[in-house]
Amino acid sequence: AITFRFEGQEKAKKFYEKLMRQNLEATIHIHGDEVHVTVH
Rank of each mutant, 00 (worst) to 15 (best):
H31G: 03
I30T: 08
Q22P: 01
E7L: 13
H40Y: 14
E7Q: 13
E10L: 07
T27V: 08
K18T: 11
T38L: 10
F4C: 12
D33P: 06
K11Q: 15
A26W: 09
G32A: 07
A26I: 11
K11M: 14
A12L: 03
V37W: 01
A26E: 01
I28H: 01
M20V: 11
V37R: 00
N23T: 04
A1G: 11
E25N: 15
K13N: 10
A1M: 12
R21V: 08
I28A: 02
I30P: 04
I30A: 07
F15S: 00
T38E: 05
E10D: 11
G32D: 07
H40N: 08
L19H: 01
K13P: 00
T3H: 06
I2A: 05
A12K: 01
F4A: 02
H31L: 10
F6K: 01
L24Q: 05
H31Q: 11
K14N: 09
E10V: 06
T27K: 04
Q9L: 15
N23P: 03
F6N: 01
I2Y: 08
V37T: 00
G8F: 10
I2K: 07
A1R: 12
V39Q: 03
K13C: 12
E17L: 08
V39E: 02
I28T: 01
A26H: 04
V37M: 03
D33S: 12
I28E: 00
E17G: 03
T38S: 05
R5I: 15
L19E: 01
T27Q: 06
D33H: 11
E17A: 07
K14S: 09
A1Q: 12
A26T: 04
L19M: 09
M20R: 10
E10I: 07
T27R: 05
T38Q: 06
F6S: 01
K13Y: 14
R21P: 02
V37I: 10
I30N: 06
F6R: 00
R21K: 13
Y16A: 06
E25A: 14
H40R: 10
H31W: 11
L24T: 05
V39F: 14
H29N: 07
N23G: 15
I2N: 04
Q22A: 12
T3M: 07
H31D: 10
E34T: 10
T27W: 08
H40V: 10
A12N: 01
G32H: 06
A26P: 04
F6Q: 01
Q22L: 15
Q9T: 12
T3K: 06
R21D: 08
G32Y: 05
E25Q: 14
K14P: 03
H40M: 12
E17Y: 06
A26Q: 01
L24Y: 12
L19C: 12
H29P: 00
E10T: 05
H31I: 13
D33F: 11
H31R: 09
I30E: 06
H36G: 02
T27G: 03
I2P: 03
K13E: 12
V37D: 00
F6P: 01
L24E: 02
G8A: 12
Q22H: 10
I30Y: 12
L19N: 01
E34G: 06
H36I: 14
E17I: 07
K11R: 10
R21S: 13
Y16N: 00
Q22T: 05
Q9H: 14
Y16P: 00
Q9W: 15
T3S: 05
